[in-house]
Write a protein that binds this DNA or RNA. Structure first.
Length: 583
RNA sequence: GCCCACAUAGCUCAGUGGUAGAGCACGUUCUUGGUAAGAACGGGGUCGCCAGUUCAAUCCUGGCUGUGGGCUCCA
């Protein structure tokens, strides 16, 4: 762990490294136009406009020049000049000019080292020699100021560390992340595939992935029924009329696919489930006595995502949300929010996630008229979200202006085994749809009232959640989720029959078991099972047949000799019941 | 969508302006072996798709599709 000083000195070093990189780029391309070059959490980058595209080979050349500059031990010197002088100094640098013009101060600081001068707040290291260990990592395109209407610059990413060892450790971590990449693992483990000829961003669940999905869904359903939800099913398409009423055709059209014509009517594939749930709500007059209603659906939706944003299972075009809508009276919101929050964290913990980042997204106080719903509603909703978070002592980040126009929300991001954060759960108030669909209930006073509606998804989308699960466990799933829990490995053909009998016994207890009857050596079968990350390997040879025992090898490499079928079953059952990683 | 790169056997990847190779996987045979790869033989590719240049294109050019790294956006 680094303390703050170290972090800030690391930041300084990385920032200095970005200057040194810019210097190298300038020497290669004297006409280069410079964007910005900050440090980041993991390193640094600098954006350039160059006369030609960079190639990976350029990185090596730039690195070499950087090394020379570091060796030269050039001092970083700070100077303060007037805005006017700055505009003159950077007159050939349009991006710098833009930045200078936006600065409020009349005095502007610049940093020099060697022949390179940059507009910069600093601070920097004393000399270039302070950059201990660095590496350039990649070239990417990046819009100037992140705005796709502005020019695209070439960005070089790099990283720098206090020591060669730290750098190597970081590079090793990158390798670890690559080895866990769900896109690689879902292929290796035969779980899910994508197909060029069938369309981008559409996942195909193979038998093993399908088995896991059923396990996930079954657990989900069990918890939902226990948690006071009802489960509903709705269609995949709906008439344009529905989407006009919901407002999706106004504010979400970009995310929707073109309509199809059915008997002269436009129908759209659903990008969200909410309007369908509301249809069910409106099938009869509702009494306050029925509320709260909690309706959940594993609802498959299709959304247009720009081709460049698709990313394995984490960003797809068709996915199944574990959606639910809670319709309640204003008085019930507080209890309901707390209940959803508990429910959500409980479910995520059930899948082995312990750490979360919570964000509370609220209105931008500067533009209150941008939002649906009254002030009172927003205050009440926000209050119930805050009180729920506080009641559970959950640290959260307040995100002003991050709320969607129809209501405030809580987003829960789960942290995986590598400390990376993934957005899954979301709990959102909706002040828009109840109005648009004229939802109502009859209250104690005998009059019609408008209910509150809360959307929530806990796993988010099954596809994304599955991808996160794969990365979290690096494919070595807990026993309860493993598509194959036990592989029986007969040493020779004469042991296959006995192995099959054991398999049948295990199957009686719903244990997912396979017999590897292939014509391979035991060692080979073990290797195969290890690579498939199957939790238990049971070796069946002469000794086991003779004493009717089991020789169990755990995925961890540990061996358990002379197990009886019963003790092995007990072990499995308790591993499944724990939902944990113990074997 | 935009910038850059990539696309060769089921998978991982070599390779060449004169229509292709390895390892693993798969099939057959031999082998029946105690805790991470036994051996031999064999089948398998219009080199992503469509055009163009060329006597000749898997290789060069363009378009399309898909994938990767980013930007932007989101479950």
């Amino acid at each position: 762990m680094q303390n703050e000083d170290q972090v800030s000195s690391l930041e300084t070093m990385r920032h200095s490294a970005s200057h040194v990189m810019a210097e190298a780029v300038q020497s290669l391309f004297p006409d280069a136009k410079f964007g910005i070059g900050p440090s980041t959490d993991d390193g640094f980058y600098y954006d350039f406009e160059l006369p030609r595209s960079l190639t990976p080979d350029d990185l090596g050349i730039i690195e070499k020049k950087m090394k020379e500059s570091i060796k030269a031990k050039a001092a970083f010197t700070r100077e303060e000049i007037s805005k006017e002088e700055a505009l003159k100094l950077f007159e050939t640098q349009p991006y710098k000019i833009e930045l200078i013009n936006e600065l409020e101060d009349e005095t502007i600081s610049i940093y020099k080292h060697g022949s390179f001068i940059d507009l910069c707040r600093g601070p920097h290291m004393e000399t270039t020699k302070g950059i201990r260990a660095f590496k350039l990592l990649s070239i990417a395109g990046a819009y100037w100021r992140g705005d796709e209407n502005r020019p695209m610059l070439q960005r070089i990413y790099g990283t720098a560390f206090e020591s060669k060892d730290d750098l190597n450790e970081y590079l090793k971590k990158l390798e670890e992340i690559e080895a866990r990449d769900h896109r690689r693992l879902i292929k290796q483990l035969d779980l899910i595939s994508f197909h060029e000829e069938a369309g981008a961003g559409l996942a195909y669940w193979h038998p093993k992935g399908g088995r896991m999905r059923v396990l996930i869904e079954d657990y989900w359903r069990k918890l939902h029924y226990e948690g006071g939800y009802d489960i509903i099913f709705t269609p995949h398409i709906g008439r344009a009329h529905l989407w006009e009423t919901s407002g999706h055709l106004d504010f979400y059209k970009d995310g929707m696919y073109s309509p199809m014509d059915i008997d002269g009517q436009d129908y759209y594939i659903k990008p969200m489930n909410c309007p369908f749930h509301i249809m069910i709500y409106k099938t009869k007059l509702r009494s306050y006595r029925e509320l709260p209603l909690r309706w959940a659906e594993l609802g498959t939706v299709y959304r247009y995502e720009r081709s460049g944003t698709l990313h394995g299972l984490l960003r797809v075009r068709g996915f199944t949300q574990d959606d639910a809508h809670i319709v309640c009276t204003p008085e019930q919101t507080e209890d309901e929010i707390l209940r959803v929050l508990d429910f959500s964290l409980n479910m995520l913990r059930g899948f082995g996630f312990e750490k979360f980042n919570v964000e509370l997204s609220v209105r931008d106080p500067k533009t209150p008229d941008k939002y649906a719903g009254s002030d009172t509603m927003w205050q009440q909703a926000e209050g119930s979200l805050v009180r729920a978070l506080e009641a559970r002592d959950l640290p959260y980040e307040r995100m002003e202006g991050e709320a969607v126009f129809y209501g405030p929300k809580i987003d829960v991001k789960i942290k995986d085994a590598l400390g990376r954060s993934w957005q899954c759960s979301t709990i959102q108030f909706d002040f828009n749809l109840p109005d648009r669909f004229d939802m109502s209930y009859i209250a104690e006073d005998g009059k019609e009232h408008r209910p509150y509606m809360v959307h929530r998804a806990l796993l988010g989308s099954l596809e994304r959640f599955f991808g996160v699960l794969v990365e979290h466990y690096a494919g070595a799933f807990p026993v309860w989720l493993a598509p194959v829990q036990v592989v029986l490995i007969p040493i020779a053909d004469r042991h296959v029959e006995h192995a099959s009998q054991i398999a049948d016994e295990l199957k009686k207890d719903d244990i997912r078991v396979e017999v590897d009857g292939s014509n391979e050596r035991m060692n080979h079968k073990i290797r195969e099972a290890q690579m498939s990350k199957i939790p238990y390997m049971v070796i069946i040879g002469d000794a086991e047949v003779e004493d009717n025992t089991l020789s169990v090898r755990l995925r961890s490499g540990e061996n358990l000799k002379d197990q009886t079928l019963e003790t092995f079953k007990e072990r499995l059952k308790s591993a499944v019941a724990s939902r944990g990683t113990l074997l």
